[in-house]
């Protein structure tokens, strides 16, 4: 039971961490709280199926073999995010963070309704990699294969990103931009390249979340990105706005907390799990308003 719980917590926390990273990356470079991230996820999900308003989903791209499909969906996610940046956020580059946030909210609504027009409002059944649902015996726990793959994939992605941020030129520029954007530009960091790069990465991460969600739930729903985006926001705030490692840690923590609550709460209170979670988050913020791992640069200077 406890080992089972550990796997549940790791898989859920891993997904939350990936989603939180997608939001923290963009916040880091341009102080934008991206409310459209959930819709990036939903768009990547719907890219798998052929547009129609029928209840039965026909796999379009989703029927491709996985080695082709995964990079393709990641590319679609990245492309969508870069296009959104060029069309919406670049013209607003000098706007206040609040205006940017409201703009991203509007973009999210536009994308969601675009999906509604193209695909209809009803959730659709999608069977993507159904064979991954079979359980595997690990020590005392029987764990779905998918969960193991998710945990491994999250570990690889986090390690790869950490390496990229530490070693590559783009990574260095991104970290510099997150620290102090104006200063970084003065020292020769090209802002458009860094921001586009951050959006591309963020979109690709959204596509990862989308693939996992579809494989796990077997459903494509226009609203499916919303809940996970909310958790990701909370993770970035709890982790300290702009701190990538903080966001990842908080995402893992929230995933673990909700897996624990799911197992530990009495059955009557279980539907309210998320309410407890959000309440807990507000409590954490009361004691550490700047987040648990606030970067030094996050404090506004006079």
């Amino acid at each position: 039971m406890s080992l089972q719980l550990l796997f549940d917590a790791l898989a859920l926390g891993g997904i939350y961490a990936i989603a939180a990273l997608g939001i923290a990356l963009i916040f880091g470079v341009m102080r934008l709280v991206n409310f459209a991230h959930g819709q990036f996820i939903a768009c990547a999900v719907f890219a798998l199926i052929v547009p129609s308003t029928d209840a039965l989903a026909v796999l379009g791209l989703g029927a491709l073999p996985a080695p082709v499909l995964v990079p393709l969906i990641l590319l679609i996610g990245a492309g969508l995010a870069v296009a959104a940046e060029a069309l919406v956020f670049r013209p607003m580059r000098n706007a206040s963070p609040v205006a940017l946030m409201v703009g991203s909210f509007a973009l999210g609504v536009a994308l969601q309704n675009l999906l509604l027009v193209l695909y209809g409002g009803r959730p659709k059944a999608v069977s993507l990699w159904a064979e991954l649902g079979q359980p595997v015996q690990v020590a005392t726990a029987s764990v779905p294969l998918l969960q193991l793959i998710v945990i491994a994939a999250v570990a690889v992605i986090l390690a790869g990103l950490a390496l990229m941020l530490r070693k590559s030129r783009l990574g260095l520029e991104m970290r510099a931009a997150a620290e102090d954007f104006t200063m970084a530009r003065m020292l020769g960091v090209r802002s458009n390249r860094v921001i586009s790069g951050a959006f591309a990465l963020s979109g690709a991460l959204a596509a990862v979340v989308a693939l996992v969600l579809v494989a796990q739930t077997g459903v494509a729903d226009v609203r499916m990105g919303g809940q996970i985006m909310l958790v990701a926001f909370i993770a970035t705030v709890v982790g300290g706005m702009g701190s990538l490692s903080g966001g990842v840690a908080a995402g893992l923590g929230i995933g673990a907390a909700s897996a624990l609550l799911q197992a530990g709460l009495p059955a009557d209170a279980r539907p309210f799990r998320d309410a407890f979670l959000y309440g807990g988050v507000i409590l954490v913020l009361l004691f550490r308003p700047q987040g648990l791992f606030a970067p030094v640069g996050a404090k506004p200077r006079v």
């Binding site: 709280v33 963070p97 609040v98 946030m101 809940q227 909310l230 926001f233 909370i234 705030v237 706005m241 539907p271 309210f272 998320d274 309410a275 959000y278 309440g279 988050v281 507000i282 913020l285 009361l286 308003p289 700047q290 987040g291 506004p300």
Partner: peptide, 21 residues
Amino acid sequence: RLSGIAASIATFAFLAMVNTI
């Protein structure tokens, strides 16, 4: 007690909390 953006996101958490309940 939170500052600007963090307060906004906390209000979003509040909205989701009320809706869940």
